[in-house]
Amino acid sequence: MDTKLRNRLYDKSFYIVGLFATLFGLIVLLTLLIDITIDGFSRLGWQFLTSYPSRKPEAAGVLSAWVGTVWVAAMTVVVAFPLGVSAATYLEEYSKKNWLREFIEINISNLSAVPSIIYGLLGLQLFVRGLNMDRSVIAGAMTLAILVLPLIIISTREAIRAIPTTIREASYALGATKWQTIRNQILPAAMPTILTGTILAISRAIGEASPLITIGALTYVAFLPTSPISLEFPYISLKGLFDPFSVLPIQIFNWVSRPQKGFWIDAAAGIMVLLIIVFFMNGIATYLRYRYEKRMRW
């Protein structure tokens, strides 16, 4: 066989391997979706979304779990986003290239590979017991925030690094300070990628059960955290942050391990709710990126 033919053959076979690899992921996801939908579709409905857990599978619902998931996800963003973006900006724009920065960089990459249950242990000692936050929404959110912080820092740094140096130089040439350059040029330009990274990180966090089980998030919760907005003065309340909570993965985990088959159907429907929330969040990420990209004109 001559070289030319052989190279053609390699080319073709890599094409097939690549196609197979791509389809493989899709097929697995599709199988999972179809399987879950067949099992859980009959349970999914208004009653399921507005009911608390129950000993009767047909009366049980995910209200406290999905509201808990949204609370925790929202608070995780509030905590992790400013911290992550500031840390990444510091590392990219301010810090000098020395051993300290290298040390921090190595630690951040290592942290992103630590199993999530370890973060749960950290959260249990630091937030639940050390800072006396108890098994509250805020303790859960802080734990997940630490879990996603390395991911946010890494994606933000990559986003900042992708901004052409010419933009920076142009800004300085016009007399802008470093802060003005970061505030008006770099961060807006990097924002689409930062947002995508953040929302993907949060999507991962809301699927996590193990760190929250470790800090002692609860399985049976038949009430919601105190609403942040009330009809009475002063209208805004942060009390909900200190209320106990449950999240969807924990509820699903509990239902799957019950003997009654009815709970397995509930679990499948719960997985659908979780998937819908994740898809919804990814949708927001795509939309925001589109909006920011359209606004960007150099």
Binding site: P53, R55, Y220, A222, L224, S227, P228, I229, S230, P244
Partner: peptide, 29 residues
């Protein structure tokens, strides 16, 4: 989230065995 407004109330905290869980869940409900 604020669509459902809940008044704060007394709290009883239970934890422990997964075997006993279904009974306590039923009673709590």
């Amino acid at each position: 989230l604020s669509a459902v407004i809940v008044h704060s109330a007394q709290l009883i905290k239970v934890d422990g065995s997964s075997t006993v869980y279904p009974i306590t869940e039923a009673v709590a409900e």
